[in-house]
Structure formats: structure tokens, C-alpha cells
Simulated scan of single mutants.
Amino acid sequence: MLKTLKPNFSTLDGIRGIAAFYVVINHCRGHLLIGGGELAKIKPVAEWTMLEKVYYTLLQATALGSEFVILFFVLSGFSIAYSLRNQQALKSFYLKRFIRLYPPYIAALIWAAFTYHMIDKYFHALNGESISVFEDFNTTIRNLFYITTGDYIGQFWSLIHEVFFYLLVPFALLKKRWYYIASVVLYLVGIFIPVDFQYLNKFTEFLLKYNIYFTVGVYLYYNYDSFKKYFLISKSYVFYGILCFLFGLEVILNYLIDINEISFFIASIASILLIVNFLEKNITNMVIRKLGEMSYTIYIIHFASMYIFYLILLKVGVTKDVDKIMVWWVWPTGVVFCLITAIPFYYLIEKNTKKILEYLRKDKQSS
């Protein structure tokens, strides 16, 4: 069906917005609040209040940052499959991807460098052994080509995998069946070979670990009607119940075992469930739409913003040790700070890249 009918990209962006918002929560909670294990060293669990026990138990639901990045990958596969449905010229495809993604990325690198130098100036000890993304010529060149090096860019690990996918997918879709087979085979190889080989370099990591989730998105697009039969849930409360069950299961698995493949698999199933039901039911509201519009900027800006928030906490005396923050309201305030910080970056950079792309589309249609 979706080969001819355009998906509602506002709805898909809404899913991205939710994922980006969750990743911000994951990082702020993880960096702006002492972990339960560390707290237990200071205050034995037997002395915790019931509220503290409930609070830290509930916070386990914020520990799925990598799983929500898998959602980004599945969405990218689905969206790019639509973009390439008519096998547009490679030059046009790569130009649009460059315009859409690269200017905000450069802005995020500049923001990370600014963060490094502000911390170096006002609280040098926090930098420790870290380096700026523009530390020297070699570091700068590496970062310009998505070989991320330096600090305050912790979330950038996923961007190189997006880039690999964009570079390969126009050719992969020429032979979709072979692409599906190769993706599954490489994924299975990645499961059974030593982990050290998986991480030999970023490209092998992409092929053996992460490409499969982009492939899930591509396959979903080309087989959408079949998936809709099994994943579309008529009752909203049942849909949200199943979604809560899937993510609850992921939380339990993350707590009990350290096997990413299982939780990533569940995340890909949840991604299909979200895409199908959000598209068919047009699930959206003003907040989701706004998060969706800004999702890319939120994702690439927030990590450096969080460390600027660190610096503010230290300067105003809220804490003297960023590794032992025990005040419950600090990390939610950090989430708000990161979202607010993303606003000027979005309107100055990303929104203008969207305007350029819209102009190119109109110009192509008129010609």
C-alpha cells in the first residue's frame, strides 16, 4: 500500500520525538542522580524509606536509552524505503540527506566544543582526561566525517550507523531480497563470533550488529499491509497495555541479564507496533508534534546541554560532586533545560534546512 500512498511523516516524526525525549530522560537521570548501587554504599538499603525504594524501582523504566535508539533505526529504514520507492537519482538522494542532517550536526559539534571550553574555564577538574571535539586537526577531521572523537558527544555513537545505512541503502534496494538475506546472515554471524571482532571497526559493528534494525524498517515498508493485519490493535487500551508489557519486559531483562540482542529484538517489535498504530490511528497531539519537529536537534544537542547544566549546578552550589547528586528534582530540571536549549538551535539551523529541502522539492515539481 505504502508504495503509492505517502505515510504521514508528521506522525512518524512524533514517534521520533518521543524517542528523543526518552533518550534525554535516560541521560539526565543517569548523570544527574546518584545510582541506586552508589546510594546503597552511602546509605544501606535497609535504611531507605519506602518512597526511596519505590522511586529507584520506578527509575528502572528510564534505563532503555539504547533500545529507543533502535526505534530510530527502524524508523530510518521505513522512511528511507519510502524516499527511495522510485529509485531517485543518487545525487539527489545524497544531497537531500546532506542538507537535512549535516548543518545541525556541525552546530552540535560547535556546541560540544563550547561546552568543553566553558567547563575548562570554570571547573577544569570536571574535564579530567577529556578532549574537545576540535582538540587538534586530526580530531577535527575525524569528527567532520562522523568518526566521533572527544567529549560531550556521548549520543553521537548512533550517527555513524545512520550514515552507513544512507550510503548503502540505494544500492541495497536494487536487490531487496538479497539485502534481506545478507542482513539476517550478517546479524547471525555477529551473534556467534567473538565480541572483539564485532567492534573491529565501526563498519563491521554496523554490519554485524545494527544494520538488521534498519532492515526491519525497510521490510516493514514493503510489507506494510501484512504487518498491519497482525500489529494493528483496534482497542487503544489494549495497544498501550501491550506496549507497556513489552517495555516492562525490556526493563526486567536489562536488570537481570546483560544481553543486548534480546532487548533490542523486543525494541524492534515495539517499533513496528508503534509505527503501524501511530500511522493508522494518526496518534498525535501538540506536544508530540513539537517534539517530533525538533527531534533531531534535541537528540544531537542534549548531551552537551546536560553538561552545561552540570556546570550551572556547581557554580550555584546545588552540588559539589556531580557523581553524588541526591536531590530528586535535579534531573527532571536538567531534562527541561536540555529541551529549552534545543529550541534556538532548531529555529536557527534545522528549521532552515527543512525550508531549503521544501524549496528543492517545489522547484523539482515545477520543472
Rank of each mutant, 00 (worst) to 15 (best):
H124R: 06
V45K: 07
I283K: 00
Y230E: 02
A46Y: 03
Y22M: 05
L75V: 08
Q198V: 15
N127Y: 13
I15P: 04
V163S: 02
L144P: 01
T204K: 02
Y180M: 05
Y102R: 04
L313W: 06
E205Y: 11
F247T: 11
K229H: 06
I18W: 07
V216K: 05
L314E: 12
P194G: 05
W331Q: 03
Y210R: 00
Q155M: 10
L126H: 04
I252V: 15
K320Y: 09
H124D: 07
T284K: 13
T319I: 04
V336K: 00
Y146I: 09
Y307M: 05
I349C: 12
P44N: 12
A125S: 14
I266R: 02
G30I: 03
I308C: 12
T148R: 02
T49I: 07
N260H: 15
S226A: 08
V330C: 01
I259H: 05
I80Y: 09
I153K: 14
W111I: 11
I257E: 14
R97H: 14
V335W: 07
Y346D: 07
W328N: 14
L33M: 11
D321G: 07
I110K: 08
G190F: 14
V54K: 09
I233F: 07
K96Y: 10
S268P: 03
Y56Q: 07
Q88C: 10
F309T: 02
F145Y: 15
G190K: 02
F78R: 00
M326P: 01
F337H: 06
V185R: 07
W328D: 09
L159S: 03
R29K: 13
A304M: 13
V54Y: 06
N127S: 02
D151L: 01
V45N: 10
D258G: 13
I266E: 02
I25G: 05
E135K: 13
N285G: 07
N285C: 06
V69R: 08
W111T: 04
I257T: 11
N260G: 06
L71K: 08
T297R: 13
T11S: 06
Y166T: 03
L274F: 14
P7R: 06
L256A: 08
V74W: 08
V335A: 05
A270T: 00
G37S: 09
I110N: 03
S79W: 08
V330D: 05
S132K: 03
C338N: 04
P344E: 13
G30M: 09
M294D: 04
D13L: 04
A270D: 06
V169W: 02
L75E: 08
F206A: 12
I160P: 10
G17V: 04
L274M: 15
T115Q: 12
D321T: 01
N138P: 00
T139M: 03
V216W: 01
Y240C: 04
E38P: 01
H302F: 06
V335Y: 08
N223R: 11
E162K: 11
F247H: 07
H124S: 15
L95M: 05
Y224V: 00
F164R: 11
Y299N: 11
N277R: 13
Y213P: 08
T204S: 14
K121D: 10
I272V: 15
P103R: 10
I160A: 06
C338R: 07
Y56V: 06
I257F: 15
I42G: 07
R29C: 08
Y116C: 13
Y94S: 15
K43S: 12
G17W: 03
L313N: 12
S271D: 10
I191C: 01
Q87D: 15
E350I: 02
L200H: 14
I80R: 04
P170E: 01
